[in-house]
Write a protein that binds this DNA or RNA. Structure first.
Length: 519
RNA sequence: GGAGAGGUGGCAGAGUGGUCGAAUGCGCUGCACUCGAAAUGCAGUAUACGGGCAACCGUAUCGAGGGUUCGAAUCCCUCCCUCUCCGCCA
């Protein structure tokens, strides 16, 4: 596979620069008909943006108020203005098309009678060409208004009513605390300190790949695997999730569907073949490329080229998934599923890849924040009326893992300022790390409502109704494997630097009851 | 990677430039016949967007994008996907 092979090529694997995001707006000089960028064309039947325009029309104030809770500026006036303009032009375009169709039918009728060269026929033909000219003008105008979709695609989900207002994690609300924090007879150490002697080799990871990569060796690698197996078995055997093994390289549509695009490209990795990079750049060049370059002043040339490169569309690219929420959720993209009387519950254990460009400097030490990590993910697809209950259930499924492993944690309801882009409501589970003396996020369970379903056009037809409805989608970690390993290390550490294996993992450890440090 | 064949409505499957959103069959829904059912007959049966209180009207969609043409499911170009054979490979 070309795309995969090229991942190792230096120019083939890249974190997208921030400027690629900022230039992707309405004024984008590169957007063109042949360059749909990462906007999904509605034509493919899968893709569509956004918020419910009909809702915004009916409730502009409520919409803006909701956005304000998330720290966004009001946009409804802008949206509605563009919307009405768009509808006006749609009417114009459709009227012209209709007329053109009629004229060409008239001509055709005459032509089929062998009267294609009569004055009457030529009249139809000429008039039709005239209409076509007007039509193409109107169509271009309509196309310009497509940025309404961009605008909507960049707006976050509306928070649920019971989500607390707040600016950042300080304003999150603790809703439950579970487990007894262990009393240590010695000073508990951080995992990064006891890890190296147990086979958690940061140096080799860094040598092979760079910062935020780790090489696990020996029993600790086995423990890591055991954790993943344990979680997966629990979610499939006890909690009713269907085990999946999805691709970890996905296309734009899947990323867009799960709201990782267009806004968070900088957090992701992507791979592309050399051939397609070249082609993408070619497609990204604005039609007036030569003109623009001619006007570029000395010394600005490099910047200009850079801007073109970074804004190059990612169309044929593969993205490395930041979470298997992406392929699991997008697996129903574009579909009309059977009414999910019982929610569709999917789980997978996969690698995840994150560039985390924005968090440089945080957790640089240790195994907490890696570019590559493993996670067991839960995804539910359900009816709107079931999503709140399903959200509670899913969170409980994640909690069940922590409880089975005997790891103390607390459950936090995220405030508006700390929630993810696509979330309507989110619970975080934070595990107690005695070495750090802090609670750290180990799971995040979100209800996205119909936000993702709208983006990917995933619907169901309720029994006895004619119209389809959007499904609701939920996702949650159950759990992040690497961070769970960290939690086990810190909570089960002994004074001599060894780590006791939690009982629940015994069936997966082949008789290993304790990780012993190498001297 | 090479060679070939394909991609049309819920399914099967016609359609190679003109009223084709698309024959026909199956499926599904309603009605008729029937004591009831089967069989039969008749009628209906895609989605999205825009307009309209509504009946309804308009537009788009035959894998995707572009082109030729007064007019494209049909012709041309590019791409994607599926299948068969060969090669390579975990």
């Amino acid at each position: 596979m070309a795309g995969f092979a090229s991942l190792s090529a230096s120019s083939g694997l890249a974190a997208v620069g921030r400027s690629a995001i900022d230039t992707g707006t309405a004024a984008h000089p590169i957007r063109s008909r042949r360059n749909p960028h990462w906007k999904c064309e509605a034509a493919n039947g899968i893709a569509r943006p956004m918020h419910d325009i009909a809702y915004i029309r009916a409730n502009p104030e409520a919409f803006d108020a909701a956005l304000k809770r998330r720290g966004e500026k009001p946009v409804s006036h802008l949206v509605l203005e563009r919307d009405s303009e768009r509808r006006r032009i749609i009417q114009e375009v459709e009227g012209l098309r209709s007329e053109k169709k009629r004229l060409s039918g008239c001509f055709g009728q005459l032509a089929s009678l062998g009267q294609g060269h009569t004055e009457e026929a030529m009249g139809f033909k000429i008039e039709s060409i005239e209409i076509a000219k007007k039509l193409s003008v109107a169509e271009i105008e309509l196309e310009k208004l497509d940025n309404l979709e961009d605008l909507l695609a960049r707006l976050p989900n509306i928070p649920a009513d019971d989500v607390p207002d707040g600016a950042d994690e300080e304003d999150n609300v603790e809703v439950a605390v579970w487990g007894e924090k262990r009393e240590f007879a010695f000073e508990p150490r951080e995992h990064a300190d006891i890890g190296p002697a147990l086979g958690m080799d940061f140096e080799t990871g860094a040598a092979l790949s760079g910062a935020r990569f780790t090489f696990l060796r020996g029993d600790i690698a086995r423990l890591h695997r055991a954790l993943a197996q344990f979680m997966l078995d629990k979610q499939t055997r006890e909690n009713g999730y269907t085990e999946c093994n999805p691709p970890v390289l996905v296309n734009n549509e899947a990323m867009y569907a799960t709201d990782k695009l267009p806004k968070f490209a900088e957090d992701s990795f992507f791979g592309a073949s050399e051939r397609s990079r070249a082609q993408l750049f070619w497609e990204a060049m604005p039609t007036d490329f030569e003109e623009q370059m001619a006007q570029t002043e000395k010394g600005q040339f490099k910047d200009k080229m850079n801007a073109f490169f970074e804004a190059a569309p990612t169309k044929e690219d593969f993205w490395l998934i930041p979470t298997s929420e992406v392929p699991l959720t997008a697996s129903v993209a574009g579909q009309i599923v059977d009414e999910p009387v019982e929610p569709i519950r999917l789980t997978a254990h996969t690698l995840c890849f994150r560039s985390e460009a924005g968090s440089a400097g945080r957790d640089t030490r240790g195994f907490i924040r890696q570019h590559q990590f493993e996670k067991v993910e839960m995804v539910s697809i359900c009816r709107p009326e079931d999503s709140e209950a399903e959200h509670e259930r899913m969170t409980a499924c994640a909690e069940g893992i922590l409880q089975a492993l005997g790891l103390p944690y607390r459950k936090v309801l995220l405030c508006t300022g700390d929630m993810g882009f696509g979330a309507k409501k989110t619970y975080d589970l934070e595990v107690w790390l005695p070495g750090q003396g802090a609670y750290r996020e180990i799971s995040s369970c979100s209800n996205t409502g119909d936000f993702q379903a709208r983006r990917m056009n995933a619907r169901y037809k309720p029994e006895g109704e004619k119209k389809t409805r959007f499904v609701h989608t939920l996702n949650g970690s159950g759990l992040a494997v690497g961070r769970t390993l960290v939690a086990v290390m810190e909570n089960y550490q002994q004074e001599d630097g060894s780590v006791t294996v939690p009982e629940a993992l015994a069936p997966y450890m082949g008789g290993v009851e304790k990780l012993m440090p190498c001297p």
